[in-house]
Design a protein around this nucleic acid. Structure first.
Lengths: 205, 205
DNA sequence: GTCTAATCGTGAAATTTAGAACGATTGAGA
DNA sequence: TCTCAATCGTTCTAAATTTCACGATTAGAC
């Protein structure tokens, strides 16, 4: 992957998701204008994004859904299956374990970690729950790439430390608190409160 | 609120969250450098963001936590309590209903809507579950501002249509599919698959 | 075969956002 | 009182991202 802008990569994932859906509906062709209508992203933006990955469209016609999908996937996903470890098996953690979307996509939850002894040892949706102390060992054994923080904010930093120590390269942090990690580890914060308040603020102007 | 950059508003919410925490710890003063260490945002960025809201810091000293917090809140939140309606009471929806963070913050879940009759009429964590058809009426009665889509992708558009019809001004969409709404309605998409894949792609370079 | 309308792809302009540099201010200590 | 070091706030610069304008291409109609 060369110098593809970060935001283009993120949008490519949206295009892939959309194309997967169109292909399932037996749709063979799609134009940047069609994609714009579906995704809400402008057609120019879409064409420019796609042009990063080569000339794959046909003027007057548009893009072949299957071909475009393959091109995008080859660039951004490269047939990888992403192995993910979950920390925290509360309500949110359990919802992640039961999330139906992961199976179809390139994501596999490989292990869950939890403090509460009553949950340890169980299997939820095929994923075993381990004590947090076993994380480094299990994460190495399962080749997990990424981690999810679904513990209370009061424990998010200590969990993050374990994740870094275990060699995870990226973290989705649902705890409503910032976590400190080396800059080689990427963090995506998803604070439900902030997401809602941000929407509200931006809708007020 | 004047011409404050969108990203500055989003970061202000992070500062507020951080300051809330510091104040709870009886911390009286904080510098931009301190905040940078905690949040991972650069100190320059933080000072520049804050300067949008007035001169509230003291050179050589930093910011008074309580004062800065109040200034930020006055600008971006204005003491509002945001009323939110939830659509879909599956695993994720239930996790949202039980999410502990909302109570402390300016967010109140006012109603939940669900198709499955076995769930309708129940109260979860104090929030009543209604049939989807009642949404327009209940949303008006409860003065809901925002909505959360926590239904399967196959029904996300029809739920979004109801939300728009009901007058909601912003939507957090957890369904892994784009939804079409008038541009007066803001949408924040949170697709767990895409969040993870994005992290993975970006960690690979 | 030619024309045409639709669509792609791209280079340049405009906008947004982040970063760097630096002067201004302030409290503390000699 | 004077100096100094820390920190704020602001202006300018640079980078990233989006938007615009337009040429290039192509399938299909005639």
């Amino acid at each position: 992957m060369k110098n593809i802008p970060r935001k283009t990569v993120d949008r490519a994932l949206i295009y892939i998701r959309t194309l997967d859906h169109l292909i399932k509906e037996k749709r063979y062709l799609v134009s940047s204008k069609d994609l714009a209508l579906i995704t809400g992203i402008s057609d120019v933006q879409i064409r420019k994004d796609i042009s990063n990955f080569g000339k794959v469209g046909t003027p007057r016609i548009g893009y072949k859904t299957a071909e475009l999908n393959k091109t995008l996937k080859d660039f951004v996903l490269q047939e990888n299956v992403v192995h993910v470890a979950l920390f925290g098996v509360g309500h949110l953690g359990t919802a992640m374990l039961r999330y139906p979307g992961f199976n179809e996509d390139n994501i596999k939850l490989v292990a869950a970690f939890e403090k509460d002894k009553s949950k340890i040892g169980k299997k939820i949706n095929g994923v075993r729950v381990y004590p947090v102390e076993m994380a480094p060992k299990i994460i190495k054994r399962t080749h997990a790439d990424l981690g999810i923080v679904a513990v209370p904010a009061s424990h998010s930093q200590e969990v993050a430390d374990i994740m870094v120590l275990s060699g995870l390269k990226g973290i989705v942090n649902f705890a409503p608190a910032s976590i400190s990690v080396p800059k080689s580890v990427l963090v995506k914060d998803i604070d439900f409160t902030i997401e809602l308040l941000s929407l509200f603020c931006n809708s007020q102007r």
